[in-house]
């Protein structure tokens, strides 16, 4: 896939970092404001997709493979399951129990393991959506050309 015009490239260069940071913000503030792992992960994936669309598929040094994002996705779901299983061994010994201290409602460091779950789900969703997009791009480059 070829890149787009210099105007699109420059604008992308300026705003893609902000979009990525906004996704991170939505993920980490998921227990305080609207949003969470699903929304933030999708925004992060959207920033990567914008980068690939604007600059063409050569910018990420793809070399015709999608293993990287697939491995990150597996890591995300693995982190989620490890966090859930840790509840069996810590505290009340119930699957999916909230074993960390709750803290004060409304502060960033609060709500026990829920922010950690948010981060794990965010990694998983972002990597999954980006992998789907990448698989399509690589397929179109390899087969249709």
């Amino acid at each position: 896939m070829n890149g787009m015009t210099p105007i699109v490239k420059k604008v992308t260069q300026l705003i893609v970092g902000l979009i990525f940071l906004y996704g991170i913000y939505i993920i980490t503030h998921g227990h305080l404001t609207p949003g969470g792992g699903f929304a933030g992960g999708a925004v992060v994936a959207g920033s990567f997709i914008l980068l690939v669309l604007a600059y063409g598929s050569d910018i990420l040094k793809l070399k015709k493979r999608e293993e990287g994002s697939s491995v990150v996705e597996s890591l995300g779901i693995f982190l989620f399951i490890v966090l859930a299983f840790a509840a069996i061994f810590i505290g009340t010994k119930v699957f999916f129990a909230n074993y960390l201290p709750k803290g004060v409602i409304g502060e960033l460091i609060s709500a026990g393991v829920i922010p950690l779950y948010n981060i794990a789900v965010g990694i998983e969703v972002a990597a999954a959506l980006f992998t789907i997009f990448l698989a399509l791009v690589i397929y179109k480059e390899e087969v249709l050309k």
Binding site: G30, H31, L32, T33, P34, G36, A84, F95, F96, N98, K102, G103, I105, G106, S110, A111, G112, V113, I114, Y117, N118
Partner: peptide, 17 residues
């Protein structure tokens, strides 16, 4: 019970994990 100000997130990750 969950310490989460956003009730949807609380339901999603704690009650209905």
């Amino acid at each position: 019970q969950t310490g989460s100000a956003n009730l949807v997130t609380g339901v999603l990750f704690d009650f209905r994990g």
